[in-house]
Simulated assay, not measured.
Amino acid sequence: MIDIDNVRADTPACESVLHFDNAGASLMPDPVWQAMQWVLKDERAFGGYEAERRAADDLAAFYTEFAALLNADPTEIAYVENATRAWDMAFYGLDLKPGDRVITHGSEYASNYLAMLHQARRRGFHIDVAPSDASGQIDVAALEDMITPATKLIAITHVPTQGGLVNPAAAVGAVARRHGVLYLLDACQSVGQIDPDVQAIGCDILSGTGRKYLRGPRGTGFLYVRQSVLDRIDPPFIDLHAATWTGPDSYELAPGARRFETWESNIAGRVGLMTAVRYAQSIGLPAIEARVANLATKLRDALSVTDDVSVHDQGVTRCGLVTFRKDGLEATDIADRLRDRGINISVSTLPYARLDLAPRGLHSLARASVHYFNTEDEIERFAGAVAML
């Protein structure tokens, strides 16, 4: 096991830069970088096919490592090139018809909601937006009251890109199971900072990325699809990896979730993501979750006592994403000025969270995200830098 207090040893030297945008661009641990380099060296020396053959054990371990991480079966795991495409492969494969209803929440990620609008225009189904409770998270009781025989899907984001909240995913899962409704969970911002368990959550489909809290390479993602619902999703496109051409006019889909994959993929990226999962497991997701939550609380406290700064996080349970504003400055100005001081943060703006920010009277929020490799000293330095703006 890796001691969580010593992970800086596996993090690139960056003493001149404070990284608080790691939810969007997390620092890659040395073991992940090294694993990718080995594959790329083989590609350079032997070519892509031989490099893939040499990486066969690590490529196979991708499925077992993710299965262990999510408490799933390896046959329920697929590698997909990014989180959006993983979510799309499942959603666009659903047989939604005119008159069907899909329930989501105002915190849903913009790309997902756009896809819902896209398919609603094509298929004729209706989108219902569940209200928030007093804390800002999805109102589970109201969600249950919205379900009708026409409701075919509940699709929410576990950790929205703005607001710092953790939606009560397991409570939503219990509602979905009681009513026999498919449940699609976007875990892009949560897997890697929150201990995930698809059995406890009760989701049928879960999508995510490698580049955020898992600290894997960009351009990598994953998809979990419960075995019992596989045949209810028709992949929106297939190739010779996703299916077998059994006759001139016939084919069979690949068994398990690999029917959502494509033959051509980034081998170094797949090995890198597998290594990132293995690295996170070696630390322990419960330890990571506790560390991130503790640092985020300290950051909220430090910002809350800073003059002219207001924290805008919501939810009963909060995560490593901390959103705030400073009087007289736009969020983009805050990010630009902090970057000039060697501090990286992100910004959540209205186009990315229209259903959430607009009702709160907000146009944008600065977002500072902590990870387990951040320190309390860095939090103090960050709050001091914000105060000086």
Rank of each mutant, 00 (worst) to 15 (best):
L321F: 14
S310N: 06
A257M: 01
K326V: 06
I288L: 10
L273M: 12
Y352A: 14
V311F: 10
R291G: 11
R325Y: 05
V277L: 02
R258P: 07
A287V: 00
K298S: 09
A302T: 03
I283E: 09
A302F: 09
L338Q: 09
L285Q: 13
A280G: 15
V292T: 13
L321A: 09
S310H: 08
V311S: 10
D327E: 09
R300T: 04
D340W: 00
D301M: 06
A335P: 06
G256S: 00
S282G: 02
D336Y: 11
Y279W: 14
I343M: 07
I283D: 10
R337N: 11
V309W: 12
L350P: 03
E261D: 04
Q281G: 13
R354K: 07
Q281D: 04
A293G: 13
V292D: 14
I334P: 12
A276M: 06
F324W: 08
G269N: 02
E261C: 01
L338M: 06
A335L: 05
I288N: 13
A276S: 15
I283W: 04
L295W: 04
S282A: 14
V311Y: 12
E330Y: 12
S282M: 06
I334H: 12
L295Y: 07
A276Q: 08
I283S: 06
A296P: 07
I334W: 14
V277N: 05
R300Y: 07
V305Q: 14
V271C: 05
Q314F: 07
S348M: 11
L321H: 15
H312V: 01
V309K: 13
K298I: 04
R339S: 11
T332I: 07
N266H: 01
S348Q: 11
I267W: 07
R341I: 02
N344R: 15
A296S: 12
T297P: 01
F260D: 03
D336W: 09
I334E: 13
P286R: 04
D336L: 11
E261G: 02
G315E: 00
P351A: 02
I345H: 12
R337Q: 15
R337W: 05
A302N: 10
T317P: 01
S265T: 01
T349S: 15
Q281V: 09
D301F: 07
R339P: 01
Q314S: 08
Q314C: 05
M274Q: 15
D313L: 03
F324E: 10
E289G: 10
A257V: 02
T297Q: 13
I283Q: 08
C319T: 14
A268Q: 04
G272M: 05
I345D: 11
V305F: 04
R318W: 00
A280P: 14
I267A: 12
R337P: 01
A293M: 03
L338C: 06
C319R: 09
V347F: 12
A335R: 15
Y352H: 10
S310T: 01
G328D: 04
D336K: 14
A353H: 13
T297L: 13
L350Y: 04
A276R: 06
R354W: 01
L329S: 06
D336I: 11
S346H: 09
E330H: 14
Y352M: 12
R259L: 01
R339G: 09
D313W: 08
G315M: 00
R291L: 04
R258D: 05
A287H: 12
A290K: 10
V271S: 06
D308L: 05
D336E: 15
Y279C: 13
L285V: 02
D333T: 13
L285F: 15
M274Y: 06
R339T: 09
A335Q: 15
G269M: 03
